[in-house]
Write a protein that binds this DNA or RNA. Structure first.
Lengths: 124, 124
DNA sequence: TCTTATTTGATAATGAGATATCATTTTTGT
DNA sequence: ACAAAAATGATATCTCATTATCAAATAAGA
């Protein structure tokens, strides 16, 4: 049975309000604004539950802990700020990258990650 | 002082002979063909040493343990077989993906990973 | 060949992220 | 409001990949 708890609702909201994928820690900190005292275990449990429900999806990045975003978005990619570590969504996609696969290889899917500075992290 | 040991040489050879990036475990198994009894600690130590020397470079993939390849190759990307888990090199690159970054973002670098089946893993 | 500092291999220790445990709190249907 | 089931929070535990430890083996210069 699934119950509507303040914690679960706060975590869902945090993910919906954020314009970008969040790490477990980011979810914890943001959700604690809404529900003080919320524990990290609840964040893990709730994220896993939302994943099972397909309400959110995991964003895996090289050498990074997973980020989570609301599910159902159309095909997109991500920008990883090398300064602050935040991950952002990228709308555009060059498309049809599967053709890059060498003969004999059958590509079914692709991922692109851009690395650089986000607007909040100026070079100066 | 750096010494030329059979172990170090075997590990270097394995990486040069392999046409694709290898995980620590893959390096261990391949190098043990040349030097039976070679231990995992030596693999880790040697890979780190080769990394410092810039003789090899690490390939980070989402949710995966790093792979290692000989350094100095020109810009390229990787194919990750979803069946056997092996990682392969892709020569081609669509180039200039940095332009996909939204306004205000300064992309400096990009990574592409293709997912699918390698020639050794037929769909059937 | 000898000497000595380095490297090795086995394995214990570490570290980080994630999960399990369990007493307490909270939902929710009645 | 009550009772029963489920969720929470604190924290212990687990799971790995990787690193540290240290006695034994081994390069490599004298």
């Amino acid at each position: 049975m699934q119950r509507n708890t303040r914690q679960r609702e706060a975590i869902r909201q945090v993910l919906h309000e954020s314009g970008r994928p969040l790490s477990t820690q980011e979810v914890l900190e943001a959700a604690q604004e809404k529900v003080p005292g919320l524990g990290i275990a609840t964040v893990y449990r709730t994220l896993n539950s939302l994943l099972e429900d397909k309400q959110i999806s995991a964003v895996e990045l090289p050498g990074e802990t997973p980020r989570y975003e609301v599910a159902g978005k159309h095909h997109h990619h991500h920008f990883h700020c090398t300064v602050c570590g935040k991950v952002f969504e990228i709308e555009n996609c060059p498309g049809d990258l599967e053709r890059l696969a060498p003969p004999g290889f059958k590509a079914e899917r692709h991922e692109i990650v851009l690395y650089g500075r986000c607007p909040d992290c100026p070079s100066a």
